[in-house]
C-alpha cells in the first residue's frame, strides 16, 4: 500500500521529519499519533504530494509518487481544517469534486446520513463549522478508493454524527481498505484503530497494535499509555 523510505523534510531550519521509514502493507485502520509538532500532518501531506520531501522515496500502491498525480485518484482525503471556496454552494462543490475525479460515488446516502439536504443550496461560507465538517466527511467517503486519509475527522462533530463517522470507518475496514487517521481523541482512536503509529521528533517511535502498546507501557488504557511513552522515551 504505502512505502516510505528515508523521508526527510525541513521547514527552514526546523527538521520535521528525519529519515522516517514506514511500511503499511495490509488493510486496516492506522492511527498516526504523536505530540503537537511531531510531523503527523507533514507525513500525511507528503503521502498526498502536498508537501515535497527534501529526501526519501514514497510509493503508493507500488508506484513512486514523484512527478505523478494520478495515484491521488486512489486516495480520499479529509483535511484537518474544512476550508472551502466560500462562493460555491454545497452541491456545486460536490459536483465539482465528482467532475474532477470522474469516479463513481454515492454521496446521496452520505448526505442523507448526515442530514445535509437542507444545506445543499447554501453557500459554503454561510455554514457552521460542524456542518462544514460533515460536508468534508461526505466528500472524503463518497468515493470508493482503496486508501483513506483522515486528518482530525472528529473536529466539531455532534455525538450522532460521530457515531455515523465511526460506522463509516468500520465499513471501510470491512471493505478491506486502508485508513490512516490522526486524532487527539484517544477514545475515538481506541474504538476505531487497529494499529498505532506513534511519531516523535520526526521519526516513528512506536508501531504496533493497541494491545502491544498497553503491554509495553504497562498501562491499562490507551490515553495513559500514549501519555506514558511521550513522557518516558527511555522505554524502548
Amino acid at each position: 500500500m504505502i512505502h516510505i523510505e528515508n523521508l526527510q523534510k525541513k521547514f527552514g531550519k526546523n527538521i520535521v521529519l528525519s529519515d522516517l521509514d514506514l511500511i503499511i502493507e495490509k488493510p486496516g485502520v492506522f492511527a498516526i499519533l504523536g505530540p503537537n509538532g511531531s510531523g503527523k500532518t507533514t507525513l500525511i501531506k507528503s503521502v498526498l504530494g502536498m508537501v515535497v520531501p527534501d529526501k526519501g522515496n514514497i510509493s503508493v500502491m507500488g508506484k513512486p509518487i514523484k512527478k505523478n498525480f494520478k495515484y491521488r485518484k486512489k486516495i480520499d482525503y479529509l483535511p484537518q481544517i474544512a476550508n472551502f471556496p466560500g462562493n460555491l454552494k454545497v452541491y456545486e462543490l460536490i459536483r465539482m469534486i465528482k467532475d474532477l475525479r470522474q469516479s463513481p460515488s454515492d454521496e446521496e446516502r452520505l448526505i442523507q446520513l448526515f442530514k445535509l439536504e437542507p444545506f445543499l443550496d447554501k453557500k459554503l461560507s454561510t455554514l457552521s463549522g460542524g456542518t462544514k465538517q460533515k460536508v468534508n466527511i461526505v466528500m472524503a467517503f463518497m468515493f470508493n478508493s482503496p486508501l483513506l486519509i483522515l486528518d482530525e475527522p472528529t473536529t466539531g462533530l455532534d455525538p450522532a454524527s460521530l457515531i455515523h463517522l465511526k460506522n463509516l470507518i468500520r465499513e471501510q475496514k470491512e471493505m478491506n481498505k486502508t485508513v490512516l487517521i490522526t486524532s487527539h481523541i484517544m477514545q475515538f482512536v481506541a474504538e476505531v484503530s487497529d494499529i498505532i503509529v506513534y511519531l516523535l521528533e520526526g521519526n516513528i517511535y512506536f508501531k504496533g497494535s493497541i494491545e502491544e502498546l498497553k503491554t509495553k507501557t504497562g498501562q491499562t488504557d490507551l490515553e495513559h499509555a500514549i501519555a506514558a511513552i511521550a513522557i518516558e522515551p527511555a522505554h524502548v
Partner: peptide
Amino acid sequence: NSKEFTELLLAQPVKR
C-alpha cells in the same frame, strides 16, 4: 482568498 480551494484541489488527482 482561494487558498482553501487550492488545498482542496491539491489532494485531488490533478496536476499542480
